[in-house]
């Protein structure tokens, strides 16, 4: 195989070496262009999801009266932007804290350490994480354990007696503030 090629390069079919050199260069160039043309859409399709920068959408979490003042309750909702193909994973939850004296804080259930679902304990007024033991106070600030910061908080607003949060992405260290 390799011997055959070597012989051909030596000029076994009578073509002039310079002409073949040109042909080789043209071939290499065409292949190069073709490869670039093919790989841009292919690689693009692979990495495109990383560059989606859609803003979050307002989600209705129900009437504010559903959240007793001074208590923190779990609100379940369907992630905006999800599609039927996501199945159950499009369902999401958030911790809604209805503060005494008015106002809401809405926290992601995802621990700021590595994203496990934190659980609220009404009695000790703490959030605890089942994975690595992160603990947060009722205002979302870090109490103890490995989390580098407090709980992620959704942007929220109240309109016509209903509570809305801006959601649509998995909360993470570089996502929300």
């Amino acid at each position: 195989m390799s011997e055959g090629c070597a012989q051909c390069q030596g000029g076994c079919d009578g073509e002039k070496p310079s002409r073949r050199g040109v042909m080789f260069k043209i071939g290499a160039g065409l292949m190069g262009v073709g490869t670039v043309l093919a790989s841009v859409p292919l690689a693009g399709a692979l990495v495109a999801p990383g560059f989606v920068r859609d803003g979050d959408t307002w989600v209705d979490l129900g009437a504010t009266s559903d959240y007793p003042e001074g208590e923190t309750r779990l609100a379940k909702f369907t992630l905006p932007g999800s599609n039927p193909n996501d199945g159950e994973t499009s369902r999401t939850a958030a911790w809604v804290r209805s503060m005494s004296g008015g106002g809401f804080q809405v926290f992601a259930v995802n621990c700021a350490h590595l994203g496990c679902p934190v659980k609220w304990f009404q009695q000790s007024r703490l959030f605890m994480c089942p994975c690595h033991g992160g603990v947060y106070y009722e205002d979302g600030s870090r109490a103890s354990g490995p989390p580098p910061r407090g709980l992620f908080e959704y942007q929220s607003k109240v309109e016509n007696g209903r509570l809305f949060i801006a959601a649509g992405r998995l909360p993470g260290l570089q996502e929300s503030t």
């Binding site: 990383g50 560059f51 992630l79 193909n85 350490h113 590595l114 992405r169 570089q174």
Partner: peptide
């Protein structure tokens, strides 16, 4: 995803590439 998200600057983009979108789902 949380570990990838910790990569400086491009972490969030890497996370999107890994998950196929901004959240864990069908993709």
């Amino acid at each position: 995803a949380s570990i990838v998200d910790r990569v400086p600057v491009i972490g969030n983009t890497l996370r999107g590439i890994l998950l196929g979108g901004p959240y864990i789902g069908g993709a």
